[in-house]
């Protein structure tokens, strides 16, 4: 299983997924850090990313759970916009996002491993 990891190492609030991907070793699971959404096209991607507004690691499968904001600038063409666009285009059929909170908590790794094992 390939898990695509998103984040920005320079931003504390956006770096947790990258740190966890470096620390987790799970059989038959490969974490790949990605910078653009190109790598997600034509796949059924599994993604690890931080998510604002949650307290524990959770699995998101419904893109409509993301709040849309007005696409005003190229900078607004964010993760949610690209997922919705690519789903509407048929480039992505199914998506699994392992969403984690912005800050770590005790037992976060175990919660992530549990979600991954269920996805396998």
């Amino acid at each position: 299983m390939i898990i695509h990891v998103l984040g920005n190492e320079f931003l504390k609030e956006d770096s947790l997924a990258l740190k966890i991907a470096d620390s987790l070793k799970i059989n038959n699971v490969k974490f790949i850090k990605i910078n653009t959404f190109d790598d997600l096209m034509k796949t059924h991607p599994v993604i690890l990313d931080v998510c604002k507004g949650i307290k524990k690691a959770s699995l998101i499968t419904d893109i409509d759970e993301f709040i849309s904001r007005r696409t005003a600038t190229v900078h607004d063409m964010d993760f949610g916009f690209f997922l919705k666009l690519n789903k509407s285009l048929g480039n992505i059929d199914e998506i699994n996002i392992i969403a984690i909170p912005l800050e770590s908590y005790e037992g976060i790794n175990q919660d992530i491993i549990k979600i991954i094992e269920e996805l396998k």
Binding site: R70, T71, F81, K84, L85, S88, L89
Partner: peptide
């Protein structure tokens, strides 16, 4: 937005 254009302009957005 581009998403709203999709029903008619899917090829262009792709």
């Amino acid at each position: 937005s581009a998403i709203a254009m999709l029903p008619k302009y899917k090829n262009e957005v792709q």
